[in-house]
Every structure is written in structure tokens, then in C-alpha cells.
């Protein structure tokens, strides 16, 4: 009996394995075509020589990376000293994306908590309301945000009319506008994962904490947050990563001063003036940064998971 069962299990296992291989094939093919091949293509391009009207010459070189990291003087013949132009753009981008993430978290967490604590009937409606603006194309939304923020736009009109400001404020082409743009672009990516986590949270834990003399704030900090942390981290990553590579908001709302990595890369591939290998190299550097962040996250998750067991 036992032997028979074990033997049956063996053959069945093999069958499953085979079936799984075939069933997963479309997934692997799609992932390869959509993710692996383009990334490898960019990796290869970043080591090629640029052609002046866009495109590449198939000649191996480190020139793109050299241009990114090395300042070789006006004539390009001095020894390598650190080139700050692009590193500064990167640094500013990280800073902007980080700020946008924090802003999204500060607004998104209470929003998600609010939705998750509504009666179950109306929760889908709230989620729907949050996602409505995202049915419109990102470009259109960003342009309309430009209208909102410009000097004679509704926001300034309101501020002046209500007496909060004496004269229209310069909002467009500032860091503030970029922040608003990024925040507005990616807020749902913060709200939805946190909402999912809070909805799963067992609220009798909050009651138990209150019963044991914890204030609302302490309960949030010591009981709720640890329980919904995976959702918060997922939300932060989902906002931070696209913010880092964003180009619409910085371009349309931030102007030339608030240039970000996304715009830098975009420019290299637009029109005839671009430098494809340089754009590819910048993309690769951005990608490695994102990978490092994700790896730190995965490491932490694994550690937290280990603690649970």
C-alpha cells in the first residue's frame, strides 16, 4: 500500500514537472522578449560607438561610461578627474524621487488606512475613486497639472482670491512642481499595496493594544506598522523606482533647472542630437542602482520571514 502510493507519487511528480515546463513556456518567452532582450540590447549599445545622427557604429568602446564618469577637460585629452555633471543629475534625481516617495507615504498611508477601515461594501468604490485619474494618459495628466500650477492657473487664482497669497506664486518650473507632479503620477502605487496590507490586518490587535494602555500613536507605531510593513515597503519601491526614471514631470513642470535622469536618457534617444551609447550607459547605471535597492529589500524581507518562523 505504502510502496504503491510512493511509486504513484513519483510518476505523478514527473508528469507535473513536464506539464509545468510546457505551461510556463509562454511566460518565459514573453519575459525574455519584453525584459531580457531589451536590457541586453541596451547593455551592448552602451559599449558601442556613437553615430552623429543617432544610432551606433558597431565598434567596442568604453567611451559612453568614460563620458559619464570622467572629466577630461575642454579638449578631452587630460587625465580622468571626476565628472560631476551627471552624478549631480543622478543625485538630484535620487533626492527628488526619495522626497516624492516620502510625500506619497505621508499622504498615501492615511488614505489607505482610511479606505481599509470603511465598511466592506464601500471600499471598492473608494479604490475606484483613487484610480480614476489614472484612466487618463500620464502626459495629459502632467500637462493639466501644468495648467493647474501656472501663474494664471486655478491654484494661484484661488490663493490670490482667498488672500493666502498677495500675488500669484511662481510654482511652475520649480522643485515643488516636480514633487507635485511625481506625487500625482504615482500616488496609487503607494495607496494600493498599503491598502491591501491594512485590509488584511487584524484590528483586534489594535483593540488589544488600547486595552493594554497604549495610546493611538503608540498602537500605530508598535502594532500596526510592523504588521503592514511589507505593504509599506512595496508601496515605497513602486513609487521610488518610476520616480527615479521619470521624465514627463521634470520636463513639463520642472523646466531646465530641474533636469532628472529620465530626461537625460530621453534626450539621448530623441531626434538627431542624441547619443545612443551614452543614453544606454546612463540607463545601465540607473538599472544597477535600482537592482541594488531591490536586493537590499529582498534581503530584509528574507530576514523578517526568517524571524516569523
Amino acid at each position: 500500500m505504502a510502496g504503491g502510493a510512493a511509486g504513484g507519487g513519483g510518476t505523478q511528480g514527473d508528469t507535473y514537472k513536464e506539464a509545468r515546463t510546457w505551461l510556463l513556456l509562454p511566460t518565459w518567452v514573453t519575459l525574455s522578449i519584453l525584459v531580457l532582450v531589451p536590457v541586453l540590447l541596451m547593455l551592448v549599445y552602451s559599449f558601442l560607438t556613437k553615430e552623429f545622427r543617432g544610432g551606433v557604429i558597431w565598434e567596442f568602446t568604453f567611451a559612453a561610461y568614460d563620458q559619464f564618469f570622467c572629466d577630461r577637460g575642454l579638449f578631452g585629452d587630460e587625465p580622468c578627474s571626476i565628472e560631476w555633471t551627471y552624478l549631480n543629475i543622478f543625485w538630484r534625481s535620487i533626492w527628488q524621487a526619495g522626497l516624492a516617495t516620502i510625500l506619497s507615504l505621508v499622504i498615501g498611508f492615511p488614505t489607505a488606512y482610511f479606505i481599509a477601515t470603511r465598511p466592506a461594501r464601500v471600499r471598492p468604490l473608494w479604490v475606484f475613486l483613487i484610480t480614476i485619474p489614472y484612466w487618463v494618459n500620464l502626459l495629459i495628466r502632467t500637462v493639466s497639472m501644468r495648467f493647474m500650477l501656472r501663474e494664471e492657473g486655478p491654484l494661484n487664482n484661488f490663493l490670490v482670491w482667498s488672500g493666502i497669497a498677495d500675488a500669484p506664486l511662481q510654482m511652475i518650473n520649480t522643485n515643488f512642481a516636480v514633487q507635485i507632479g511625481l506625487f500625482y503620477s504615482y500616488l496609487p502605487f503607494m495607496v494600493l499595496p498599503i491598502y491591501a496590507a491594512v485590509e488584511r490586518y487584524n484590528f483586534s490587535l489594535s483593540e488589544a493594544a488600547a486595552d493594554l494602555y497604549a495610546s493611538k500613536w503608540t498602537t500605530l507605531r508598535r502594532i500596526v506598522l510592523p504588521a503592514v510593513r511589507p505593504g509599506v515597503i512595496a508601496g515605497c519601491i513602486l513609487v521610488f523606482v518610476p520616480s527615479l526614471g521619470a521624465f514627463l514631470a521634470p520636463d513639463l513642470l520642472g523646466g531646465a533647472k530641474n533636469f532628472m535622469i529620465g530626461s537625460l536618457i530621453e534626450e539621448q534617444f530623441k531626434g538627431n542630437a542624441g547619443n545612443w551609447p551614452f543614453g544606454a550607459a546612463a540607463s545601465m547605471i540607473l538599472l544597477s542602482m535600482v537592482l541594488v535597492i531591490l536586493m537590499i529589500y529582498a534581503r530584509q524581507q528574507a530576514r523578517a520571514g526568517g524571524e516569523e518562523r
Binding site: N202, S204, A208, D211, I223, P226, E307
Partner: peptide, 20 residues
């Protein structure tokens, strides 16, 4: 009074122990 100001404690039906 809110629950955290009442000197009474509760044993919950589902225990509600803090999992972390």
C-alpha cells in the same frame, strides 16, 4: 473614558496576541 484609560484588561476570544 477611552479603553487605554480604563484599569481593566481583556482576554480576547481570538487571543489577539501581537504576532511580531
Amino acid at each position: 473614558l477611552p479603553p487605554n484609560k480604563r484599569p481593566v484588561n481583556t482576554v480576547f476570544q481570538n487571543y489577539a496576541l501581537f504576532p511580531h
